Amino acid sequence: MLTATLAFAGVAALINLTPGLDTLLVVRTAVGLTALLTASRLAYDALRIAGAGYLTWLGLSALWRCRRQKVHDG
């Protein structure tokens, strides 16, 4: 029983570590985005500013929720 379980765990781990089509799709998309951002300074700056805005929005909304919760808790 222990041998079969160990063999199954080994095969399952090997299958999970083997890259498949989904991994290829993610790598292809990331490489395409990297090529675009390397070629276009405007695209890079737009993504950078959008990312900074998004992080600012997340931070402010977290602070707002925390403050609102303290007011309601009293």
Results as ranks from 00 to 15, higher is better:
T3M: 06
R48D: 07
L2Y: 09
A12F: 13
I15P: 00
A7H: 03
W57M: 06
L37T: 08
L33T: 11
R68V: 02
T56P: 01
F8N: 02
T56D: 14
D45C: 15
T3E: 13
Y44C: 13
R41C: 06
A13R: 10
L42Y: 03
T18Y: 09
T18A: 08
L21Y: 07
V27G: 00
L58E: 11
L58K: 06
L55F: 11
L33I: 13
L36K: 07
L47M: 11
R68M: 03
D73C: 01
G51H: 02
G51Y: 05
R28T: 11
V27D: 02
A46S: 15
A9M: 10
R65C: 01
K70S: 05
L37R: 06
V31C: 02
S61T: 15
G59R: 08
C66H: 14
T3H: 08
T34P: 00
F8Q: 02
T5N: 12
R48E: 09
T38D: 05
R41M: 12
D73Q: 05
G53A: 15
A30M: 08
N16S: 08
A7F: 02
L21E: 12
L24C: 04
S40K: 02
L14S: 07
G59C: 05
W64L: 09
R67Y: 06
T34G: 04
S40V: 02
F8H: 06
T34L: 10
L6D: 10
V11P: 04
Y54P: 02
G53E: 15
R41K: 12
V27K: 02
G32W: 03
D22R: 05
A46K: 11
A4D: 13
L33K: 14
A52Q: 12
V71I: 05
R65H: 04
A9V: 05
